[in-house]
Computed example of a mutant assay.
Amino acid sequence: MKLQNLHGPVIVRFSSQRGILERMHNAEEVAALTCSAWDPALRGVLIDLALPDGMLNVARFLHHALFDPREILDLTKTAGLPDEQVVRRLSDAFYGALKGWASH
Rank of each mutant, 00 (worst) to 15 (best):
R43G: 04
E28Q: 08
L42I: 14
I11W: 13
K99T: 15
D92K: 06
I72H: 06
F61R: 14
A31Y: 06
H64V: 03
L98H: 11
R43M: 07
L56G: 00
D74Y: 14
L81I: 01
R60N: 14
T78V: 12
A37C: 13
N57W: 01
D74V: 02
L33G: 08
H25G: 08
R13Q: 12
P52D: 02
E71V: 07
A37H: 09
K2D: 15
L46D: 06
A59W: 10
S91T: 10
V86H: 11
Y95E: 03
V45E: 11
Q4F: 04
W101P: 00
Q4C: 06
C35G: 08
Q85K: 14
H63M: 03
W101S: 03
S103A: 06
K99V: 15
M55C: 00
R89D: 02
D74R: 13
L75T: 06
E71Y: 12
E22A: 11
V58A: 15
K77G: 01
V86I: 07
D68Y: 10
A31W: 06
L66R: 08
H104G: 14
V10L: 14
S103G: 01
L81N: 09
G8T: 01
G100C: 09
E28N: 07
M24D: 01
L56W: 01
H64M: 12
I72P: 00
L21S: 11
F67C: 15
D48N: 08
S15W: 10
D83V: 09
Q17C: 05
Q17W: 10
A50I: 02
A65G: 13
V10I: 13
V45H: 11
T78I: 07
R43C: 03
R70I: 06
M1R: 13
A27E: 11
A59G: 02
A32H: 01
H63E: 01
M24Q: 10
L49A: 05
L75F: 12
E22L: 08
A27H: 14
N57Y: 05
E29Y: 10
S16H: 14
F61D: 08
T76Y: 09
L46T: 01
V30M: 04
L3V: 11
L33Y: 04
W38G: 02
E22Q: 13
